[in-house]
Design a protein around this nucleic acid. Structure first.
Length: 342
DNA sequence: AGCTGCCCTCACTCTTCGTG
DNA sequence: CACGAAGAGTGAGGGCAGCT
């Protein structure tokens, strides 16, 4: 039995005891005849009754038929019971009509025993069950949108579909992320004057950390090696549609460091790039090719560089001391203008 | 009233994760 | 390591607001 199922079992039984004042004994994984195993046996000593319970995390209108059928099949001839996280009022009615006894963690129940009848519906599901739901704005799709928003001042005022296009995510994701950003105070709706980003500096900080943790790992297309040491100084990637990021970009931009590792962002098909740079596949190689996750041009592109915000994030993601120093330079010189509050 | 552009929902697919 | 559940992301389509 899964951990969440165990939690559901404990919670639902607790609700039952509270409702009825009856003490119960639980035994998990009980064998029935023909070696069938049922998730739990709920014994109510006072009523001299056993209920055989099956746990289902979620039961919806669609799945209800199959679930009930499965349980009745399993516990043939016994007192069957469905235990689940939450039963909506509508589902409760249907279960009652099917004479399917149930308990949920919100205290809804249908019990139809010779000397105990219970039918309770309409109790609300507890919001905080297990862990709170994750912030969608800080999932990969959200991070892609935040990047597009910071790189393109004013984009937040544009229609959702345009934001979606620039960030290379679906419209639906924009809805979720915008909601979150509003809740967190990073986006305000000013009615006629449209939406507006707030606290850009703080938002960027969070983005940089989460980028390294959640988005960047998903972008890796491959690791490569090349024998030429200085190739990156004079290779124009325009034809191959590539852009330098990370240490490579920082070196070209600041002349402050000698890159040990190279980062190239590129669109999905990158055969041209491999040919041009004579890159050989090598999991230990020092050239990483990452998938481009934005769909807009900015001023640095003509120099084969990604936006300085991304260079900054790449440098910090390495954790290397020298890189962190360089990141500060890039921040003061280039990034700062993107996070001015206006 | 009809048209247009926009927002947002929802049913679905894809991906990840926990479990036996 | 295969399976199913949960979670994340998708995008067509419904419905609404503002314009003609």
């Amino acid at each position: 039995m899964r951990k969440t199922e165990k939690e559901i079992l404990a919670k639902a039984v607790e609700q039952f005891e509270k409702l009825t004042g009856l003490a119960v004994e639980i035994k998990q994984e009980v064998k029935l005849q023909k070696n069938k195993i049922v998730d739990a046996r709920i014994k109510i000593p006072k009523l001299k009754v056993n209920l055989y319970a099956e746990l289902k995390a979620n039961v919806t209108n669609q799945t209800l038929g199959a679930v009930v059928h499965q349980i009745k099949e399993l516990t043939k001839g016994e007192n069957e019971l469905l235990i689940t996280h939450y039963v909506t009022p509508q589902v409760a009615e249907r279960l009652k009509d099917m004479n399917m006894q149930f308990l949920d963690t919100a205290g809804n129940a249908f019990i139809n025993l010779p000397n105990l009848f219970l039918f309770i519906k309409g109790n609300k599901a507890e919001e905080i069950f297990g862990k709170e739901k994750p912030i969608r704005a800080f999932q990969p799709a959200g991070l892609q949108l935040i990047y597009a928003l910071i790189c393109n001042p004013g984009l937040e005022k544009k229609p959702y579909r345009m934001m979606a296009e620039k960030a290379m995510i679906a419209n639906g994701a924009v809805t979720l992320v915008v909601k979150d950003l509003k809740k967190l105070g990073y986006l305000v709706d000013m009615g006629k004057q449209g939406r507006r980003i707030k606290n850009k500096k703080e938002l960027l900080n969070r983005w940089v950390n989460l980028y390294a943790e959640l988005l960047r790992p998903k972008l890796l297309l491959g690791k490569y090696r090349t024998d030429n040491m200085d190739w990156w100084k004079h290779q124009d990637l325009t034809n191959a549609k590539g852009l330098y990021g990370g240490e490579t970009a920082a070196a070209l931009l600041t002349k402050y460091l000698k890159p040990q590792n190279h980062t190239i962002y590129i669109e999905e098909n990158y055969g041209k790039l491999l040919l041009q740079l004579k890159l050989k596949k090598d999991p230990q190689g020092n050239v990483e090719v990452l998938k481009k996750f934005w769909n807009f041009n900015d001023t640095m592109a003509k120099n084969n560089l990604v936006n300085p915000i991304l260079i900054y994030a790449d440098l910090l993601a390495t954790g290397d001391n020298r890189n962190v120093e360089t990141a500060k330079l890039v921040y003061d010189k280039e990034v700062i203008r993107y996070i001015r509050e206006d």
